Computed example of a mutant assay.
Amino acid sequence: MNTVTQKIAPFHLSSAAREWLSFSICLVCLALFVISAYDKITEHDRFLRGLVKVKYISDYALFVSWAVPITETVIAVMLLFPASQKPGLYGFTLLMSVFTIYIGSMWLWAEKLPCHCNLIVEKLSWGQHVWFNIAFIAIASYALILQKNGFKHKH
């Protein structure tokens, strides 16, 4: 008697489920950057004053104060459209990694810890902030893994 053995992946998602989950992650990342950019633009003077206090950024504070929310907005728009989601996720992951390195270095070496991220994140401790960023980097990376082979669209 022959036994047929099927190898079943422990956690397999259909193409449609991967696409839905990836898009959901993009929307969460988009929301974080839209909220953050909006807060940095509407509270620009406060954001700029905070950057001026940072030793290595102070000379470039005006540029950074506009570059960060503009970059966040561009990445958020990229996350909205399927054709640009993958580069948007790479941009999101890169920018969140830069923010995390910045926060980690400030946490380790700065005497005063200015945080002007947005209304949600600035209520966190510095340690919580680092873990928050790492969690977002992880979910964005997971979305990139989900998109690795693309999605099969039925037309």
Rank of each mutant, 00 (worst) to 15 (best):
K152E: 01
K152I: 07
S125Q: 09
D45F: 10
I57D: 01
F23M: 07
E122F: 11
A83P: 11
N133F: 12
G127T: 13
H12K: 12
M106R: 01
W66N: 07
L146C: 10
L13H: 11
A31L: 13
L30T: 12
L32N: 03
L94K: 00
A37W: 10
H153G: 09
H44N: 08
G88M: 08
Q147M: 14
M106C: 03
L95V: 14
L30G: 05
I35A: 07
L13P: 07
T42K: 10
A138D: 04
H116M: 12
I101N: 00
F99S: 01
E111V: 09
I120Q: 12
K55T: 10
M78H: 06
L89A: 05
F11R: 04
I134D: 14
S58F: 00
L21F: 04
T5R: 06
K152Y: 01
I41N: 10
W107L: 09
L27T: 02
L119Y: 10
W109S: 14
T3E: 15
L94W: 15
S125P: 02
K53S: 14
L48R: 12
I8S: 10
W109C: 06
E111C: 06
K40F: 08
E43I: 00
I139Y: 08
L124Q: 12
L108D: 05
Q128A: 15
T100D: 02
M106W: 00
S84I: 05
V28Y: 06
I134K: 12
S97P: 03
S58V: 05
W66H: 13
P87A: 05
I35D: 09
I75W: 05
E122K: 15
V52E: 09
F81S: 09
L80S: 14
A140N: 03
F151M: 09
I145H: 07
L62T: 10
A76H: 04
G104A: 01
G91V: 05
Q85C: 14
R46T: 13
M96D: 03
A31P: 00
A17D: 15
H12P: 04
L113S: 08
Q85T: 11
A138M: 13
P87N: 00
I70T: 15
Q147S: 09
I25G: 04
T3D: 15
V52T: 07
R18V: 02
G50M: 00
C26P: 13
N118D: 12
L124F: 15
L144W: 08
V28G: 06
L21W: 04
F81D: 01
G150L: 01
Y90S: 00
V54S: 03
V34G: 04
L32I: 13
L95N: 05
Q147Y: 03
G88W: 11
H155C: 11
I70G: 11
F151T: 03
L124D: 08
F33K: 02
F151R: 01
A16G: 08
S58E: 05
I120T: 13
L79A: 08
H155F: 14
F99T: 04
Q6T: 13
W131A: 13
V74R: 06
L21H: 06
L30E: 11
S97E: 03
T42I: 08
V34L: 15
L89Y: 10
D39S: 05
L146Q: 07
